[in-house]
């Protein structure tokens, strides 16, 4: 029975097969090399534009100067980065707990869902910059205020995706669980939560980026720096001093942080799903 599907395929070497393999090999390295190449060319173009036109560094610094600033101000930038990272990750963690918790609550009780879902939507559609000033009036602790802002932005995709996932468990499987006499809790634990996992992870990837955006935006609104200020305040402060290279360096760090968070969450998603979920299974085309 298994030999049909698993037997080693004979070496096919017709033209079509060879071109297909070449395409696969190209895609394999192209996926990494091409974006690096494009970024490299972009940086080169940036460098050329700055040097050939003699643009002064207080208007547009070249990539070399930005990199030098990154190294020179590293201690300062690292402190700021760690603060931003801390707020982002904490907000993401609370978003996960809050989002998944609310989603579970919503699927357990239609009444709760009907009552509270509108609030979740209202929080989501109101721009965070317009809520943040109020939050900083009522919340004394600046850290807590930043966290609340980042959480408001980040939790909705987790909530809506997880709710969708919990509700999309196969109804035939629900029948099977009923016949097996599964309790409500078992249905949640063994059927709905695993079914929701791919949806949750999709929401988490969006939430990761949003948590970073939320924490940066909130810091702009919070304004005054002092101890424990993150990358957003570093940019703000550098702009007051017309320290354009430092603005670029901090911006670079924020972008890099976003990419790393996205990559990390994508990797997590792959590790959890690649064995069974349609979205992550590698298939031969």
């Amino acid at each position: 029975m298994t030999s049909l599907t698993e037997g080693s395929a004979p070496e096919l070497v017709d033209v079509e097969e060879r071109s297909r393999r070449r395409r696969l090999a190209f895609e394999k390295w192209g996926k990494w090399v091409l974006p690096v190449l494009v970024i490299g060319l972009g940086i080169l173009a940036w460098h050329l534009v700055v040097t050939l036109n003699g643009i002064p560094h207080y208007i547009l610094p070249g990539p070399v100067l930005v990199f030098e600033t990154l190294v020179k101000d590293w201690a300062l930038l690292l402190d700021a980065l760690l603060i931003t990272l801390q707020i982002t990750l904490m907000a993401l963690a609370i978003a996960v707990i809050g989002g998944v918790g609310l989603a579970v609550l919503f699927t357990q009780s239609r009444l709760v869902e009907m009552s509270f879902y509108p609030y979740a939507v209202i929080l989501q559609v109101t721009p965070i910059v317009s809520i943040a000033p109020l939050i900083f009036i009522y919340v004394d602790n600046k850290m807590a205020g930043l966290l609340i802002c980042a959480w408001i932005v980040a939790f909705f995709p987790v909530l809506s995706n997880t709710t969708l996932g919990l509700n999309s468990a196969d109804h035939n499987l629900r029948d099977l669980f009923r016949i097996y006499g599964a309790t409500r809790w078992q249905r949640l634990r063994y059927l709905q939560l695993p079914s929701a996992l791919p949806y949750f992870l999709g929401g988490l990837r969006i939430a990761g980026g949003l948590a970073l955006i939320g924490s940066v935006v909130a810091e702009y609104v919070a304004g005054t720096g002092g101890v424990g200020s993150g990358l957003a305040f570093t940019i703000l402060e550098a702009s007051y001093r017309l320290n354009i290279p430092r603005m670029f360096a901090a911006l670079l760090l924020i972008a890099a942080t976003g990419v790393v968070i996205y990559a990390g969450l994508s990797f997590l998603s792959y590790m959890l799903l690649h064995k069974w979920h349609e979205s992550a299974i590698r298939r031969e085309v």
Binding site: D170, N172, L173, D175, L176, I179, Y190, L191, P194, L197, W276, H277
Partner: peptide, 14 residues
């Protein structure tokens, strides 16, 4: 006391 088998396999993919 009832076992059930349907047209679809009803396996948990995870």
């Amino acid at each position: 006391r009832i076992a059930y088998m349907a047209q679809t396999d009803l396996l948990c993919p995870w």
